[in-house]
Computed example of a mutant assay.
Amino acid sequence: DEAPERQDSGDGQPTTVQVETLTARLHEPGLMLQGQLEPWSSVMLSAQVPGRVESLAVSLGEQVQQGQKPLTIADEGRSAAVLRWQSQVRKLEADLVAARRLRANNLASESQILSLESELAAAEAELTGARQAISHLTPEAPFDGIINSISVDIGDLVQVGSPLFQLVRVDRLKATAQIPQQSVGNVAPGQSVRVDLLDGSRLSGVVTFVASAASPETRSFAVEIAVENPDRKRVAG
């Protein structure tokens, strides 16, 4: 048999064939959740001693450092109380040393020694309390943050528990959301995530917590994500 005659393309030019190499990749489906952004840390500092606000060293929105003292409550005799109890402790210590020497020579009773030891312990406790009261006159910021609210003004009288100011940390945020039961197996601490904000911008985060038990009301699992916010964008809420 004769081979079939090859058909000519008509223009005498060779046909061009484009070859594309395809590489197989594993498809990783994404999980989209709606949640809420909160400050990484938030604390309302309250008065630990009663007194009158003597000075305010910060203003709303100001950045403060850990250990900084935003306000001062008036001393009102507390420093004098420390000096008084220091003097009493020194006196009782000297009396106790002398009584023990007398006791060694049977010139003092054991009950006298015990009585002085009891008085000294009570005086030392009073001194500790007086010193703590002094430290509470100038409450310290427990972490670096921003003054988000101030509840007092100079001259205000505060009681124990009265709110003074709120401090928030927003250079890192905490995103919270709920994961459906059928998807919780795909999420684990340490995973990187992307957080899309309402203004269209994006932040990066890392999963820090996935609940071990579902909520009995929603049958979903709580998740928390640490979100870095170096520009301190006002997005928490």
Rank of each mutant, 00 (worst) to 15 (best):
G35K: 03
A81G: 02
L127S: 06
G200Y: 03
P142E: 04
Q178R: 11
Q65W: 13
V58F: 05
K174Q: 11
R103V: 06
A130T: 03
V158W: 00
T16I: 13
I179D: 02
A122I: 03
H136L: 02
L137C: 14
L107E: 13
R78N: 15
S212P: 10
E62Q: 15
H136M: 05
L33W: 03
L164C: 11
A47D: 04
E140I: 01
Q112M: 08
E20H: 14
Q86E: 11
G12M: 06
A141H: 10
R234M: 09
A177C: 03
I150W: 02
R84V: 00
S111I: 00
Q182G: 11
Q13W: 05
I73N: 12
D144K: 07
D199I: 04
T16W: 12
V160T: 09
E28S: 14
E5V: 11
E5Y: 14
E124G: 01
S201T: 08
T16N: 09
E126D: 12
L92Y: 13
S9L: 07
A80G: 07
S55E: 07
F221M: 02
L116D: 00
V168K: 06
D199W: 04
S41C: 08
A74T: 07
V89L: 05
A24M: 09
Q181E: 14
D171L: 03
T23N: 12
S204F: 01
D11K: 12
D8C: 08
S118N: 14
V210W: 03
V235A: 01
D171T: 08
P29A: 10
P189Y: 00
G67L: 00
S135R: 10
G185H: 05
A130F: 06
L167E: 08
Q178E: 12
V152S: 02
A104E: 13
S41E: 14
S149W: 00
V49W: 04
Q182A: 15
L60I: 00
V43A: 13
D1L: 10
A104C: 06
A121I: 10
L56Y: 13
S118G: 15
Q191K: 06
A57I: 02
I179L: 05
R169P: 07
R78Q: 13
S115M: 12
A108F: 05
V206S: 01
L33H: 07
L164T: 11
V187M: 04
T128E: 15
A141F: 04
A80L: 06
R202T: 06
S55V: 12
D171Y: 14
V158K: 06
V160I: 09
Q66F: 04
P139K: 01
E20M: 15
G67A: 05
Q112L: 13
L37K: 02
L37P: 04
R202K: 13
A130W: 09
V223N: 01
L137F: 11
S201P: 05
Q88C: 10
S41Y: 11
L22D: 06
P139R: 00
V97E: 04
E76V: 08
V19Y: 15
S42Q: 15
A57H: 12
M32K: 11
R78G: 14
A133F: 14
E110W: 09
G185Y: 00
N105T: 12
N148Q: 06
S192R: 11
R194I: 07
T176E: 09
A98V: 09
L173H: 02
V168T: 14
L31V: 11
A123Y: 07
V193R: 08
P50H: 07
N229L: 03
S118L: 02
A188I: 03
V158I: 08
A94I: 04
M44S: 15
S79L: 10
A133I: 05
